[in-house]
Design a protein around this nucleic acid. Sequence first.
DNA 1: GATGAATGAGGCTTCATTCAT
DNA 2: CATGAATGAAGCCTCATTCAT
Lengths: 197, 197, 197, 197
Amino acid sequence: MARPSRWDDVVRSAARVFRRRGFARASLEEIADELGMWKGSLYNYISSKEDLLVAVVKVPAERLIADVRTIRDGEGTPEEKLRAIVRCHVDVLVDIYDFAAVYLYEAAASDLGEQWRETDREYTSAIQGVVEAGIAAGDFRGDRDPHLMTMTLLGALNWLTRWWNPQGDLGPEAVTDQIADTVIHGFAVPAPVTAQT
Amino acid sequence: MARPSRWDDVVRSAARVFRRRGFARASLEEIADELGMWKGSLYNYISSKEDLLVAVVKVPAERLIADVRTIRDGEGTPEEKLRAIVRCHVDVLVDIYDFAAVYLYEAAASDLGEQWRETDREYTSAIQGVVEAGIAAGDFRGDRDPHLMTMTLLGALNWLTRWWNPQGDLGPEAVTDQIADTVIHGFAVPAPVTAQT
Amino acid sequence: MARPSRWDDVVRSAARVFRRRGFARASLEEIADELGMWKGSLYNYISSKEDLLVAVVKVPAERLIADVRTIRDGEGTPEEKLRAIVRCHVDVLVDIYDFAAVYLYEAAASDLGEQWRETDREYTSAIQGVVEAGIAAGDFRGDRDPHLMTMTLLGALNWLTRWWNPQGDLGPEAVTDQIADTVIHGFAVPAPVTAQT
Amino acid sequence: MARPSRWDDVVRSAARVFRRRGFARASLEEIADELGMWKGSLYNYISSKEDLLVAVVKVPAERLIADVRTIRDGEGTPEEKLRAIVRCHVDVLVDIYDFAAVYLYEAAASDLGEQWRETDREYTSAIQGVVEAGIAAGDFRGDRDPHLMTMTLLGALNWLTRWWNPQGDLGPEAVTDQIADTVIHGFAVPAPVTAQT
DNA sequence: GATGAATGAGGCTTCATTCAT
DNA sequence: CATGAATGAAGCCTCATTCAT
């Protein structure tokens, strides 16, 4: 499916506008304006506004799910894997901020169909798989709900799009380390109390 | 300035529709339909659609900020206070789910003006104050960014509106305890390693 | 037809609002607000918005037509009568400015029905009668169209509502004298040229 | 900034409807109907209803102000200049009746902003300049208020839109001559009385 | 591929008017 | 007479989408 040459520009512009204004508020005219074209011309690239949303959302979704699959199926302790997942998430924000923000905040609100929900479910359950492996290995507490644990991590990560400026003082490494540390220590089985007396 | 009698119904209906469809996608006709009135009649209560959003958002915002102020200024260790903050947040979700979801997902996207941002800032900084007190007391790690810590907690809490069903199997107490435990352990200064050898 | 006690207040308020905003732009709510009542309450006095316009317009219309009839049928030369007509017009502006402005600018735009047009025609033709009497008496030029002469006078007078402030520096007497002089000299048969050589 | 092709049609249609119904009462649907388009399509040409009013009003305003400047700055006695101004005004009514009527009756009622008031002031003061030149030359009476004189002329001219039918029996030349004569004689210093005895 | 105008549905908002209390 | 809520029609405006050039 050979896309016309400016296809990438179109999607990038859509990502920017969707993040800034939200999908519902964004108008195709705004996107066309950014590209210096007329809104009618966009229909040489898409057949509906939703096409654009799907295209935008695909970028971080495919990258994240590929990364998380690789991590899940690769070597390393559950702790190391969680840390790697956090790093991927933060990297995505650094690399393709607009796309990621749209992915996290607009995709759920719009109804992108079954295929979309399936992808989302797989992403979540891949992370949850790591969490459950940690529990099984005795590293993470077994008295917690694994889904809640997974969502706690995802919430902390996704909220970054609301407040974090990747170009600001707090760099990606610090964010990665600190969130990963917090979650890993938060999940960990506590050190035996008897040892401290 | 006594509000007309069905004011509460109007706001409740708006909260429901705004949560379901998002502010931008929601139509006043839908809200009016729920109330069994004509859309024009809504203007006996408001003077714009945004007024409704403000009214909806005010409910959880005022409750949360009042609660968190009380907690911050009250008795207790930082740990106890963080746990109390988590409980309040979860309680709000249980009590006024639609309002809370709108508050967390629509308020930021729409531009509700300076007063709104001020409230939001105060809420965040009240929680951050507790976090910093914990650091000062030596309970929480001093090598972390307090703002990032605060946002990690808020992200985990706010993400609940995306997946948690308060009427489901995982009850409010479990959610409160587990999120609070995760965050508190995640923030805590680790037990001295020497004790374990 | 005994009117309720605040009827006069209602009409006065309507005149004020209609002048300020124009009949079509004016809302009953604005009028009610000025009176400190609710817009629904106005319907204790009227049965439609147009009723208010009719009531407002009636005041200057009846006064002007009565005055002009009296003048036309009274004693005096056509010149004196024209001067008296101008004075009446200016007096109306001084006494009931809002009513007069509405009468002159809103009545024609709205369609107030046949009775209204009849009144308007009679007013015009009464003035035109004076003009024609002046022509017949040899005071005014016979080579002019009497209707155009009449409308020239009325235009000059009615335009006052667009620029003149009765409370300003240029007093009613000056306005009366100068407009009357201009028109009377403008209408007059010129002095024989031969006399000047 | 080439205007789309039907721009002139749109403005002409707007002028017609605005004159017929008044700006406030006119609906965009009516204008669109005249053009055989949908009301939404009008927004390819304008961005608000008021834009249309501005566009309509600009036509006679610019023509009149250009004409009156040329006359003021050209050759001729004040009398000749006043007569030329009257002719321009009447010509505008003949040529672009709808536009002129809207200009005279709707522009003042709507609030078209400072630029508009500035134009109006300049037009008036250009005419007043001619009047004052006539006074200075000793042709027009010095015991009159020049602004009142100017407004007397403008009132007589503008009132034409209320009653005169340019296609009727009373032709443009007659109207021009008679109004100009009336005003000029009305303004003129009276012939010395002594000559007549 | 781009253009620029048109489409047509739908949304927010206003407002004269009604009505039960 | 006043109240205050509701009605229902209509208006302005937006915008995704289409289409002939």
